[in-house]
Design a binder for these strands. Structure first.
Lengths: 341, 341
DNA sequence: GTGAAAGCGCTAACAA
DNA sequence: TTGTTAGCGCTTTCAC
């Protein structure tokens, strides 16, 4: 914010022999201003290179027109797409965006939220970190009238909206599909059960087993951080099992893929010996051979809907009774799970 | 920015029977304030839940303490890591961050830059979009005293700093390595030559051929958008060539990997029939079989150095003569290019 | 349809 | 070491 961009409303007022208030009103298209003067003012402002000073405006209006976004990590296609959807909506509605990464850490999440709060964002879009337990940092926001919309990794939180998919159903479908291919001893690679997405996928898995008369075997359940490293480690453990499992349902593609790689290196045939399904439809799922069966869901739309909901809330257009929006997902069946009969 | 967070400096001043300026100074640890009063003030401020109003402060100081970041896309490990590095430095120095994606479009880049400029960021960190030609939107910034630091995809731009690696050398090394494995008909999958990274990698490739007495064959050179789709398409073209090429040097891992997949599906053996090298060391390079030979470079450090340089510039600590910083890279040789002799 | 004037919360020059 | 005061640029109430 340097001097040479400081053409103020006063400067253009002076140039036109008008008052600053008239200029201010004209520039925001206030109805009480004469069309002709509006035009003159706009032209003059443009000619002089006038630019609104948002700080003065924010200071005066007590509104920043800025939305804060807190995500675990930016490094997935899923997140990048969500954010593209968010940007589309916020741009269109004149909101700015501040994005920060919690790096999957609950502690860092608290600090992100507090930083955003301090920069007085009007509202926040949040997908929770892996190990966030306590939601106090959000209830604080709500007390201060800063609305929060959760997406994907959501929280039960009175007064917050959530945008997600039916992870239970998706987990159920993926597992059922594996069962339909003849799998009976199905490993589940799950994430932290504090997070709805992982708890729901896990429960879907359990339900599918139950509905098919398969007993739950806790030795087949691995709750991890879902990194590539964990996938590899679990594969090593799987290789030591006797009898060998015949299926894997992983809560993300990263761990599914790295497990597959490790298993294949030890001579396991996929899908014949072990069938595998992942989650997220990351591009990597189409690189691995055989291509990975996975669950696809509409990242961009999630972003758009989350942003729209938040803005509606901010502008009091919100239907207050809306609490959760659930989007469609689909199981994409590929060769990692399709056994020739 | 709602009422209930509006405890001002006046409120705490009144509570302590001090003047607002003393409070202001104490809160920023101004040296002229008595330690004891500083403590009292801090305690009181905390107790009352005081929070600085950045807009008032920015308005007054004509400085936003905010840095704008413009990147092509967020969906790579490379970018996510760069941004993590940037965040680390900016947080430490009390700067905020606004991140926006140009989606590889020069047009959108212009609009990102203008939005950031309008929110009066103090400076910008930029990695150019694929097809940005004209750099006027940046020279405009410089005229207005908003410093710009480019990273990775940099520009020749008087007054801007650049952080990058030696792409020429990296391209040269990758190609030389392929040649050392016996490759003679080496395809190059390159990106838009407007971008330094792609032009340099291409030139490195050419130089390596020349230094090894191999003629440049324009039929082996594909300039594309480096998406997975392009990789697949090029692979299809390669399959129709006679004689078949015996090597591929791609300017990113995405296109290298998708080309490999397509080639393998047609029975081409890698590396024996065709050896492949990529660029970026994305995680995908260790999923594909055989693992992809690629060029690694320090994303996080690039982010840290870019942010540090920009902040130095903003705070006039800058050694003005520094123009370009070049970081180390390394060729990571894996099985996609290693032929058993 | 337009203008005058106050004030958003903070900082910094100047005074004490 | 602390206080007084003016003003950053904008919006908005009230007056005309």
């Amino acid at each position: 914010m340097k001097n040479n961009r400081d053409v103020t409303i006063y400067d253009v007022a002076k140039a036109l022999n008008l008052s600053p208030s008239t200029v201010s009103r004209a520039l925001k298209d206030h109805p009480h201003i004469n069309q002709a003067t509006k035009k003159r003012i706009r032209a003059q402002a443009k000619a002089m290179g006038y630019q609104q000073n948002k700080f003065a405006s924010n200071l005066r209006q007590k509104k920043t027109n800025t939305i804060g976004v807190v995500v675990p990590k930016l490094n997935s296609y899923f997140m990048a797409s969500v954010i593209a959807g968010v940007e589309k909506i916020t741009n269109k509605n004149g909101y700015g965006l501040i994005i920060s990464q919690s790096q999957e850490s609950g502690k860092q999440e608290i600090s992100c939220v507090s930083t955003l709060f301090n920069s007085r964002v009007d509202g926040m879009l949040v997908s929770l970190a892996f190990d966030t337990k306590n939601l106090d940092h959000f209830s604080l926001l709500l007390k201060k009238d800063v609305p929060v919309v959760f997406f994907d990794r959501v929280a039960e939180c009175h007064g917050c909206m959530s945008i997600k998919i039916d992870n239970f159903k998706a987990g159920y479908e993926a597992t059922t599909h594996l069962i339909s291919q003849g799998c009976r001893r199905i490993v589940h690679i799950g994430g932290n059960l504090l997070r709805n997405v992982y708890a729901d996928r896990y429960n879907g898995y359990r339900q599918a087993l139950a509905d098919n008369g398969i007993d739950l075997n806790h030795k087949l359940i691995f709750i991890t951080d879902l990194t590539a490293e964990s996938g590899t480690e679990i594969a090593k453990k799987i290789l030591k099992m006797d009898p060998l499992p015949d299926g894997i349902f992983a809560a993300n593609d990263t761990s599914a893929v790295s497990a597959m790689v490790e298993l294949q290196e030890s001579g396991i045939r996929i899908p014949d010996d072990i069938s595998v399904a992942g989650f997220n439809n990351e591009p990597i799922s189409r690189v691995i051979k055989p291509n990975l069966t996975t669950v696809d869901y509409p990242a961009r739309e999630i972003g758009e809907i989350a942003a729209t909901s938040l803005i509606n809330k901010l502008e009091n257009l919100q239907n207050i009774s809306v609490d959760t929006i659930i989007l469609k997902h689909s199981l994409i069946i590929r060769h990692s799970s399709l056994r020739g009969k």
